[in-house]
């Protein structure tokens, strides 16, 4: 494609877009809506992952050691735990520490416990942090295989729910987005159809002068792509603003939302790709159906 030809396609496409304002606006606004939904899902999924990570950082597995073991064996178990894949850190948490913690928790009523200090009813333990909440299950299984481990407490259930939630959201959003993309492509196709009809005379003349089929088709492809680009930019601006307000007002326990600067490029790339894809698909549909060259 020569630069001259490209300029021509671009000029024709812009002219059509301006001439058929109503269909252009309809296409751009539905594409913006679709991209906004896509962006909202993406932002939501990114944030669920991000928050799950924060949450799992606070989620420790506690491993209790058989009370019959001596101090040396207690240490050895710690070494074994460190070798388990997915374990980020291991910290000793002795029965004395547990006792003190409970004394502190009870406050005024601590005397009840004080009598038991010499005959500490708690077990020595380790507090373990893992890299990824999804690994909880396997890490716990590995821990339970270690000799001398009496029992563990963990967040397997919570982790399972969060994972399931994350996957469900992802799957639902993929289908919703695909559906919206298809609908939008047809709305774009309609806009391109209108401009094909608006330029029937020109196409007819072009054929007599010896225009190739693609020379006739290109302006319509460019038209769809331009609509896609505009839609991507507009929806990016909209989601930026929306994100800004949600970010500012977000408060849930002490979890943090992802800063926009961490996700803007993924959103923009997705909007660009999907927007242009919808535009190109829309014009392709119309060209096939309505442009008999």
């Amino acid at each position: 494609m020569t630069r001259d030809a490209f300029k021509y396609y671009f000029r024709q496409a812009s002219k059509s877009l301006k001439k058929n304002k109503v269909t252009t606006l309809a296409s751009i606004s539905t594409t913006v809506a679709t991209l906004f939904i896509l962006g909202a899902f993406m932002a939501f999924i990114f944030n669920v992952s991000y928050m799950t990570e924060q949450f799992s950082r606070g989620c420790q597995i506690q491993v209790f050691i058989d009370e019959t073991l001596d101090a040396e064996q207690y240490d050895k178990i710690g070494d074994k735990i460190k070798l388990i894949e997915g374990v980020a850190s291991v910290e000793k948490y002795t029965k004395e520490q547990i006792f003190d913690e409970n004394v502190e928790k009870l406050g005024d009523k601590a005397e009840i416990l004080e009598g038991l200090r010499e005959d500490n009813p708690f077990r020595d333990s380790y507090k373990i942090e893992i890299n990824d909440l999804e690994l909880t299950e396997t890490v716990v299984k590995a821990l339970e295989k270690i000799d001398g481990v009496a029992n563990t407490t963990d967040f397997r259930e919570a982790a399972g729910y969060i994972n399931m939630f994350r996957k469900t959201v992802r799957n639902v959003s993929i289908w919703v987005v695909i559906l919206f993309c298809i609908i939008t492509a047809f709305i774009v196709a309609n806009a391109v159809k209108v401009s094909v009809y608006g330029r029937r005379k020109e196409i007819n003349i072009m054929k007599y002068v010896g225009a190739t089929d693609w020379f006739i088709r290109w302006p319509f492809v460019v038209e769809g792509v331009i609509m896609g680009i505009y839609s991507a930019l507009i929806s990016f601006a909209v989601i930026w603003i929306a994100y800004f307000f949600i970010y500012r007002n977000f408060s849930f326990q002490d979890l943090q939302m992802l800063p926009f600067k961490n996700i803007w490029w993924m959103l923009l790339a997705a909007f660009g790709a999907v927007g242009i894809g919808i535009g190109a698909a829309g014009s392709a549909i119309s060209i096939r159906k309505h442009l008999k060259v």
Binding site: K201, I205, K207, Y208, V209, G210, D213
Partner: peptide, 17 residues
């Protein structure tokens, strides 16, 4: 298209843009 480029054509109704 290449064939038509060797021809010129004029109609009764001008067919201008």
């Amino acid at each position: 298209p290449m064939f038509r480029r060797t021809l010129g054509v004029v109609f009764q109704d001008f067919r201008l843009l």
